[in-house]
Design a protein around this nucleic acid. Structure first.
Length: 334
DNA sequence: AACTTTTACAACCGCATCATT
DNA sequence: AAATGATGCGGTTGTAAAAGT
């Protein structure tokens, strides 16, 4: 036995609401309060389904609704909550005063989701996408058989992938290579050590911790904000948090970045792929950022002078860390 | 200027859950 | 406990506006 429909839909109006309808609904709810949606349309003189009235009220007419663009903080909150709650839009919206589940859902689908995809993050799992993992296996192959793969060819991937992802891919690859093929890893160790240790002058400043708030943030929070900088046709990149201060802390990953340093893309061996000799140090895998002293919208990135809000958002500062399993010993690795 | 494509968001639909009888 | 109604939730669609050609 099927359920009876919430209302008799024959003859009921659908589609966009007119100002007159909004007025009727608002007036009625302000006098009688929300609820009893089934009978409300008739009482309010509306030819609408009760469900439609409820939706219109909760998503649009409610006086406490905050309209307009989402702030940086709201966006970051959505990403973090989504990584924990998934598509629980109502629960997420509950943490954002004045925002509705529908609004949060729409904003996710039209803005955040696309940006995560663009940066190689699976918006569902908040982890690097499969194609990124494929890249990791390619890099692994390159390390295991340099004669077959000219690593410089891999640099072409920079045009397609976020350079930071490329670097993270190499880091991941090196770690797994060490675990799975320690001989091969050791064979390349001098290079690896060099590429990961020769950047003392470029490493981030490690400063004493002034903040210990460390709710763990998934990869998305970090990677979604990393964007290549296409300056002078070169593979420049910038970590949005380049001006962050960082604090050493086990089991967290942190990236350093110097927006003025180009990738060493002209080199032809695998060392050039990682770019960490300049910008990414595995040493840094033992550090984690603390809250930034710089404003959230500080311009630590310069993407072709773009002033679009979305681009700005992609460069905004935020927490940049994700957890590394306890079993990983980076000091041993290095 | 006209047409097409893309984007953003309001609204709808169906199912799930809770409340009431 | 079961049936029914009311409401909430999340996925999807429709459409107006913006952007591109």
């Amino acid at each position: 036995m099927g359920r009876t429909p919430c209302c008799d839909k024959t003859g009921l109006k659908k589609g966009p609401w007119t100002p007159e309808e909004d007025l009727k609904l608002s007036n009625y709810v302000q006098i009688h309060g929300p609820g009893n949606w089934r009978t409300l349309p008739k009482k309010a003189g509306l030819e609408r389904c009760g469900k439609s009235c409820r939706l219109r009220w909760t998503n649009y007419l409610r006086p406490d609704i905050k309209r307009g663009r989402f702030s940086f903080e709201e966006e970051e909150t959505i990403i973090q909550l989504h990584s924990v709650l998934g598509n629980k839009w109502s629960a997420i919206a509950g943490r954002l005063p004045g925002r509705t589940d529908n609004e949060v859902k729409n904003y996710w689908n039209t803005h955040i989701r696309k940006r995560l995809l663009r940066n190689g993050i699976d918006p569902v799992t908040h982890a690097p996408r499969l194609d990124f993992l494929d890249l990791s296996s390619i890099l692994s192959s390159a390390l295991c058989n340099q004669s077959l793969v000219n690593a410089s060819n891999l640099l072409g991937a920079q045009a397609l992938l976020n350079p930071q992802l490329l670097r993270l891919g190499l880091a991941t690859t090196l770690l797994s290579l060490k675990q799975e093929n320690p001989e091969i890893f050791l064979q390349h160790l001098p290079q690896n050590q060099k590429l990961c240790n020769n950047s003392q002058e470029n490493q981030l400043q490690v400063q004493p911790s002034t903040c210990s708030t460390s709710a763990t943030v998934p990869c998305t929070s970090m990677l979604s904000q990393m964007e290549p900088i296409e300056a002078s046709g070169e593979g420049f990149f910038c970590c949005p948090n380049a001006q962050e201060t960082f604090v050493s802390q086990p089991n967290h990953v942190q990236f350093s970045a110097n927006p003025t340093v180009p990738l060493a893309s002209e080199n032809s061996n695998i060392r050039s792929v990682d770019g960490c000799s300049q910008n990414f140090s595995l040493d840094s895998l033992r550090s984690t950022p603390v809250s930034s002293p710089t404003p959230l919208n500080s311009s630590s990135t310069f993407i072709n002078g773009s002033s679009s809000l979305d681009d700005e958002r992609e460069s905004f500062s935020s927490l940049l860390k994700f957890e590394i399993p306890d079993g990983l010993d980076f000091s041993e690795f290095l």
